[in-house]
């Protein structure tokens, strides 16, 4: 990846983070921690990987994205707005009664959302169904889904994983956002899902481990996934929950609470300092 591409994607990730902070601050609720941890992954997906068209969000041949960890909706909305699906300004209406931006993604309200999610463990099954659709229709679209590392405690994830491998769904890429934290503590304290790569690989998946904030590694993982034939790919992305906002990083308390006014300004200052496009 060229330095220029990397800079471009870093700014997109930064804008996604700003969208997360704007949304959760104005909503006075939401899930900033697990939204911030996937900013680079979403920036890469929406600006380098997915074959999509904001002008034609339902185009049958488009690649699909399912946010199985639906509580990271603020990040998904920010990515979609940044990509041109709807105005960035609307991110401030997150979770309001008159807004189309629900607390968790609704495919019928939000342009660009391919599946309604929020109840953990269910999005991956829908993504598997979409990949089956590609296979049955002979279409070459690909399906991507991001799961939380806590989410994979849900048994349905492994039902879906078993099925996807059995059906050789090589159009499917699952990305596990391994930020190591869930509501009640670290994932090990609560109910350890480790070792995650071995679990997916024993279910018959091709597994790639990366740093989920490193664009070079993200790029090469997605490129490798495209070469895999006969099985789905799982990308286990090590990430930092709350990444990009100093006081939120690795703090379990920021899973599901919104910044107050002072915290909002601090976060935005930190993000704007690294944003050449929006610096005052």
């Amino acid at each position: 990846m060229t330095a220029e591409q990397k800079k471009f994607l870093a700014i997109k990730a930064n804008h996604i983070r700003q969208g997360v902070i704007e949304g959760t601050f104005h909503a006075k609720s939401g899930h900033p921690g697990g939204s911030l941890s996937i900013a680079e992954l979403l920036a890469y997906l929406y600006f380098a990987e997915l074959r999509i068209d904001p002008v034609d969000p339902k185009k049958p041949s488009r690649d699909r994205f399912v946010l199985s960890k639906g509580h990271a909706a603020p990040a998904l909305y920010a990515a979609l707005a940044e990509r041109g699906y709807f105005p960035v300004e609307d991110l401030k209406t997150l979770r309001q009664p008159d807004s189309y931006l629900q607390g968790h993604p609704n495919m019928n309200d939000v342009p660009g959302v391919d599946m309604s999610t929020g109840s953990l463990g269910q999005g991956i099954s829908a993504a598997v169904g979409m990949a089956m659709g590609a296979k049955l229709s002979g279409s070459n679209f690909r399906v991507y889904s991001i799961l939380g590392d806590g989410e994979i405690q849900e048994g349905q994830v492994w039902e879906a994983a078993m099925f996807a491998a059995a059906k050789k769904l090589d159009q499917l890429v699952a990305i596990v956002d391994n930020n190591n934290l869930q509501i009640d503590g670290t994932v090990e304290e609560v109910n350890s899902p480790y070792p995650i790569p071995e679990k997916f690989s024993s279910f018959g998946w091709h597994v790639i481990e990366i740093d989920g904030h490193d664009f070079d590694q993200i790029e090469s993982a997605f490129a490798e996934a495209k070469t895999v034939k006969g099985c789905p790919t799982a990308i286990i992305a090590k990430t930092i929950k709350g990444k990009g906002v100093s006081y939120m990083e690795n703090q379990v308390g920021w899973h599901g609470s919104a910044p107050n006014e002072e915290q909002y300004h601090t976060a935005m200052q930190e993000l704007l300092a690294a944003d050449p496009e929006r610096q005052a």
Partner: peptide, 9 residues
Amino acid sequence: GIAAGLSTA
């Protein structure tokens, strides 16, 4: 869930 996803295609 798979049925739901497939129906979207």
